[in-house]
Write a protein that binds this DNA or RNA. Structure first.
Lengths: 182, 182
DNA sequence: TAGATTGTTAATCGATTAACAATC
DNA sequence: TAGATTGTTAATCGATTAACAATC
């Protein structure tokens, strides 16, 4: 498939074609009137809009079950993300490797973040340690934070923060399941 | 703290007090004019609205790194969720346990879901197997699906579906990090 | 009674949808 | 030329904010 219309895109994504056209037009004109959108070009433009031409480098702080799973997560690569460092405070695991990536002491964060050119800090520690880890990450100079701890973090406005609190989705599911009963 | 005002709630959650009052009023009147909201009562009412008085029972399909991490996830308990069964197709791990929970063959799903009164199916298999797993889960009678595979699933409208696609959050982070540069 | 604060109605704002000229 | 489809302006709809009566 070379070309796709806003109509077909809308059908596939469950969005109205008007919305598709409006959203895309916000970022420029990359369709052709009377024809549609070139799929390859569209992909590339969207990738550029999202900044995915960058090869972002991640560091995961907290190598528990979730942190370990993320260190092994294969889908990162397809988006151009790679995990380049791990941090933990547990002396038993510092120095060892997960998926070929070394675990460092949290105290060495500043040094390692600089050495490995870490862009994004991933927080997978318990909620009560998350703010302090965030502060460390910001001080170490990361450009963004991806937070899995179920707590509200305060970071400078210059550092984008995305929260991945699983209890939000689960609560939504619980809500809908309760509603549908009636 | 016994009582909280919409003003204070708004400050803490970064929401306008009007929005807080409007949203809460949608579900009934549980504040007191001139006083504010009783914290304990508010918690309980919200918990009930979200259906969290139910003790939802989860089954995780796909015991890879992510599925395994979720099987060990401690924060489920505080919301009243519990993992009661695991499924995988890998013969090497079928019959073994993770966090005390047994791994069953996917082919036994219908039987086990009934036996264990599973409410929610959690999908942590690769994207290309996710739809087929979803179909199995629906046929087995789960009431809701929590999908971690990065793909769009089609399920009956009677079965609530929540997607937890990590690439969405990561792309958002990438976008903001690219914008802030300028 | 004066001050505080909710629930709700009215006013504003922004986002979605409809319509259509431009054009392939 | 007729048909298809974009980008954009105008119309509609819904959600947020402002205002205020009710009341503790």
């Amino acid at each position: 498939m070379q070309i796709i219309s806003s109509d077909e895109l809308g059908r596939r994504l469950d969005i109205t074609p008007e919305q598709i056209r409006k959203d895309l037009a916000t970022f420029g004109q990359f369709g052709r009137k009377g024809i549609g959108y070139d799929v390859r070009e569209l992909k590339e433009k969207i990738s550029n809009i999202l900044g995915l031409q960058n090869k972002w480098r991640l560091a995961i702080v907290g190598v528990g079950h979730l942190g370990g799973a993320l260190a092994n997560y294969v889908n990162f690569a397809s988006l151009g993300f790679s995990v380049v460092a791990l941090f933990d405070n547990n002396k038993k695991i510092i120095g060892s490797e997960v998926n070929g990536i070394k675990i460092h002491a949290v105290s060495r964060m500043k040094k390692i973040v600089a050495e490995k050119s870490v862009d994004i800090g991933v927080i997978t520690v318990p909620a009560d340690e998350a703010q302090s880890v965030a502060d460390f990450l910001v001080a170490a100079g990361v450009k963004g934070i991806w937070n899995f701890a179920p707590t509200k973090l305060s970071v400078p406005p210059t550092v984008p923060l995305v929260n991945e609190d699983l209890s939000v989705g689960l609560s939504a599911l619980s809500y809908h399941m309760s509603q549908d009963k009636e």
